[in-house]
Design a protein around this nucleic acid. Sequence first.
DNA 1: GTCTATAAGAGGATAGAC
DNA 2: GTCTATCCTCTTATAGAC
Lengths: 183, 183
Amino acid sequence: MDGDTRETIREVAIDLFSTRGFDQTSLREIAERVGLTKASLYYHYPSKQALLTAIVSPLLDGWRAVTDEAEGMAHTPDNVRHVLTTLLDVMVVNRPLASVLLRDPAGVVAAAGPLWQDMIDVATRLTNWVAGPEPTVAQRLRAIAAMEVLRAAYSSITYLREEVADAEMREVLLDSALGALRR
Amino acid sequence: MDGDTRETIREVAIDLFSTRGFDQTSLREIAERVGLTKASLYYHYPSKQALLTAIVSPLLDGWRAVTDEAEGMAHTPDNVRHVLTTLLDVMVVNRPLASVLLRDPAGVVAAAGPLWQDMIDVATRLTNWVAGPEPTVAQRLRAIAAMEVLRAAYSSITYLREEVADAEMREVLLDSALGALRR
DNA sequence: GTCTATAAGAGGATAGAC
DNA sequence: GTCTATCCTCTTATAGAC
């Protein structure tokens, strides 16, 4: 059974957006891979932008959940570790999906509009929490750096040919992020 | 004197590519901002791709210089610090230019072709050197993470509203990258 | 060196038959 | 739900006058 055409379209789109980029991927290509015509896609999604939104939303939801939880917690070393761990989980789970953002930020920005602003806002809130209360500029820079380390979960696809076990990646990157954070 | 039209075009293109993305920026927009017509651009650059190449090449050259120097050095803690420092300098100096790459990697990949492969190759060589001789998977992950920290030089534009002095940024990010690297 | 005019094509999106 | 056919707009790029 291939019951859910809508879901198939979403999966194909994730694959293409994450490798070729959002702008570089035409609806014709997606339709071809799914085995439909361009016009048929519009029955399932009213626009290319709507398709993008359907793809990206789960990641935003994940970030928001982590952020909401964090902001209810005191900024202790244990809690920082916990928050970074949870965030890393979200990133690893949504790996293919997040590549969509990294492949063509400009295209996503142009298409996603307010959704993108939401992502910036959530990411900013999270970075601010990680930086701690009344942070110095240096602490804020370190917080940004720590977040960038987690991004290595995606870059590693480019640079490491061999497969890395999710568990090892989580462990190493968490420790590395904490290293980037402390003075 | 506005003697060098060619250089003016390059500067306007960097500005637009880095904010709107390579694909999202049309030659019409560039021409408009420069005060020429689209057709006139083609007198100075034979194609949009050639324009991109002219923009990106200096960054590639910078990376290559750092990489070549690194590969002639032993992998000692002092040398690692030196290499990361030099790389950070290159990134800070070429900040607007590097944003072109980050804004629309997919578009750049599609247009730059072999040039892009060169960049991947150089970045890979550098990451490998930073990981040290016969590295474990964990060491390679940490090397990737350290490189990502340097990228915070660019992300900080998004997250830090206030201006950060180049000197402070270099100091903090270098220390943070070293923190990400060590176990 | 810069212009006007135009070619040649791809993209997203819609109308309406089946 | 899927199709064919079409619209409209925008793009990169070229031809040729000045």
